[in-house]
Each structure stands twice: as structure tokens, then as C-alpha cells.
Design a protein around this nucleic acid. Structure first.
Lengths: 212, 212
DNA sequence: GTCTATAAGGAGATAGAC
DNA sequence: GTCTATCTCCTTATAGAC
């Protein structure tokens, strides 16, 4: 029994360290992107040596893939726990607000792959692709319901709405507003949400921003 | 006189080669991004040796800066030659349509700097910053006129409209639609323009897309 | 001004002691 | 499992012949 406890303890610390590695990778990825994030930095950030890092993840690509999978899992959880009573449009605003808060808190956009190389790398990662497709299915359903309810524009193809929605979660305008404007985070989020769904043109719109 | 002609000829070929280098850099930047574009590739693409490249541009950063400056100059030209009779909103749609066509033709978004490192590099390049500020002034004027005319939402700060507008010119949704949808380029552009200004929510909108 | 050949340094990945 | 020290490859940049 003592032996089992010891193994379990080892496993626990192993898991804890793995989480710490993923946390560090997540933050560094958000800060510097894939190319500029070095394995040396990740190891230094966690406080371990680089070879120890490679005991957990066999390559940089595997490490980044694991970090991205954890991110998508978070998005899946959030979508799963959306209040069923909300309308499709309100749900989408909640999801976008959540994703933007993650980013403004120093995290990654939950569907980045903005660089061709990273996109290709991730599309080869079956675990990642599976989860992304799952998330995409959930959001596709919401879009379909929103169109049927007249809340989303039926003249736009589903894919245009979906990809534009994803793109808003990693919109560079957010970075620029954070850097060069005096607006606080929640104001930025509210503007981005209304800008996404109501557009930039026309008369002032009254919009319910995604609640925390 | 013959000597002068010879000098002039040399200068002409020098200028031609420089343009060829910038063309190659532009295309490779669009394809692979700053980090993955190597000076070897640029030289090979132009058909010259790497040291010759360094006779034209003292560093990779200078080369990319020059390419970006040429890009912004193109945008300034386009904005300068907008039909004065058009409304502010129509002008913005024309500019966005133009920028998206450049990208779908294999070029760069005319205001990228999506990666922190590249952004920092460019903000240190005074020639670049000067031109960007010039472009920003022109567009700010258009935005102000658009708000006054009731064509743009007066409840959104100018900076939100401007940055969102810039961001649409490098929207990753365009890449995803090109890769994963069956839509042709002009349809993608039309959808992106109406999505930007009219939003994703609500009833179908009738929009005049930017004309070629 | 252009080339061949090479320096200098960084980053992913690993060997081998403990 | 973790560390120190090292390998190897790639990329920016340059020296020196022509």
C-alpha cells in the first residue's frame, strides 16, 4: 500500500508539473507566438531544465498541440454550460465575450492558427482536430437556430458567419485598442461585440453585451 | 555623355533589381510571415546571391520595412484617388475591397503587424510610421465625415471604427473562407464588406459591394 | 557590384551522470 | 526523472576574390 501511495504521489507531481508547463506555454504563446517561444524559455519559466521538458512532451509541436487542446476543451466546457434559456444570438455574444476576456487576461484566442505553419501543424494533430470539429458543430447548431429565429442574417452563408465569429475572437483590433486607446477592457469587449454583430455602419445601436 | 549614360544604365538596373527584391519579399512575407521568410529564400527567388541582397538592404528588418513602406504608399495612392463624389461609407467600402483584393491576389494585408515583434520593429522605422500616420489621418477624416452623415455609428469611438476597419483588411476569416469554402474571391469580398459594416445579426441586408 | 565560402550565434533535441 | 553539457542544424550577416 505504501508503494501504491508513492506511485500515486509521483504521478500527482508529474501531472502538476505538466499543468505548469502547459500554463507557461500558453502564456508565452500568447505573448510571443509560436516561432519566438523557445523551449528554453518554457523550461526556465516553469523552473525546470529543458531535458525534463522533453520527458513530458516529445517535441515543441506536441507541447503546443497539447496547450491548444486544453484551450479548446475550455471553450467546449463554456459552450456546454451556456444557459439554455438564452437566445442563439445571446449565446454567441456570451461566447465571444468569454473568448475576448481570456485574451485580454493574457491568454490565447481560442481559435488562433493565424500563421500558415501553425495551422498546418495543428491540422495534423488529430486530438486537436477532433475537438475543434466538436466545437464547430456546437456553434453551427447555434448559428442555424439563430438564422431560423431571424436573429442572424440569413443572406450570409453559415461558414461566413462562423469564420467571422472565430476571427473576432482573435481580432488584432483588440490589441491595438488595448495598446493605443484609453478604453478599459470591458468597454473594448462591449464595442467589439456590438461591432461584430451590429456592424460599423448606420445609426447607434443598443446592444446587450455578454455578461461576465 | 557616354559615361553618364552608362551610370544611368547602371542605376536603372540597380533600381529594377531593388524592385524585384521588394516584390519577392512582399510575396514571401505574405506566404510565410516574417520569421519563416529567410534571406536565402529572397535571394534565391530574385536569382541573386545573398551578399548582393545585403548591398541593397543592410538587414532583414530594413528590407521588410521597405516592403511595408511600398505597401502603404500603394494604399495612400488608392485613397488619394477615391472618387470625390462617393459618400464616406462608400469610400471605406472601396478601400476595404481594394485591400482584400490585394490579399486574395497573394499579397499582404496593408496594415498587418499582427505579431508583437514585427509591430515593434516597424514602430521604430520612422519612414514607415510617417506614412502610416498619413494614411490614418486620411481615414480618420473619412470616418468623421461618415459619422456626421449618419452613415457610421456615432456611438462607437473613432478608434474602434478605425482599428476594426484595419483589422478587417487582415481578417483571418478571409483565409479560412478561401481554403475551406467554395465561395469565389469576389463573393468572399462582398460578404466580408457587408459583414464588417452591417454586422452578422439581424435581417438580410442589401449592400453595394466595393466595385473593382 | 556580384559571387563563393564562412563566421557567429541561436534553437531544437539528446547523451550520460546522478 | 532530473540535471549539465553538448550536438546539430539553420539563419543572419560578412570577408575577400573577381
Amino acid at each position: 500500500m505504501r508503494i501504491l501511495d508513492k506511485i500515486s504521489f509521483k504521478e500527482q507531481t508529474f501531472k502538476l508539473r505538466e499543468d505548469a508547463i502547459l500554463d507557461a506555454a500558453h502564456r508565452l504563446l500568447a505573448q510571443k507566438g509560436f516561432d519566438l517561444m523557445t523551449m528554453d524559455e518554457v523550461a526556465a519559466d516553469v523552473g525546470i531544465a529543458k531535458p525534463s521538458l522533453y520527458k513530458h512532451f516529445v517535441s515543441k509541436e506536441q507541447l503546443v498541440g497539447a496547450a491548444m487542446i486544453r484551450l479548446i476543451e475550455g471553450a467546449l466546457d463554456f459552450v456546454d454550460q451556456l444557459p439554455p434559456a438564452e437566445s442563439p444570438l445571446a449565446k454567441m455574444k456570451l461566447v465571444l465575450g468569454w473568448a475576448l476576456r481570456v485574451r485580454l487576461g493574457g491568454g490565447l484566442p481560442y481559435l488562433p492558427a493565424t500563421s500558415p505553419q501553425v495551422r498546418e501543424m495543428l491540422t495534423k494533430n488529430m486530438g486537436y482536430v477532433t475537438k475543434v470539429l466538436k466545437l464547430n458543430d456546437l456553434l453551427s447548431d447555434i448559428v442555424a437556430l439563430g438564422k431560423k429565429a431571424g436573429e442572424l442574417r440569413s443572406d450570409l452563408p453559415d461558414e461566413v458567419i462562423l469564420f467571422s465569429f472565430y476571427a473576432r475572437s482573435c481580432d488584432p483590433a483588440v490589441d491595438y485598442l488595448r495598446l493605443y486607446s484609453a478604453l478599459d477592457n470591458e468597454t473594448i469587449i462591449a464595442h467589439m461585440i456590438t461591432g461584430c454583430f451590429d456592424g460599423l455602419a448606420g445609426a447607434p445601436k443598443v446592444t446587450v453585451a455578454g455578461s461576465r
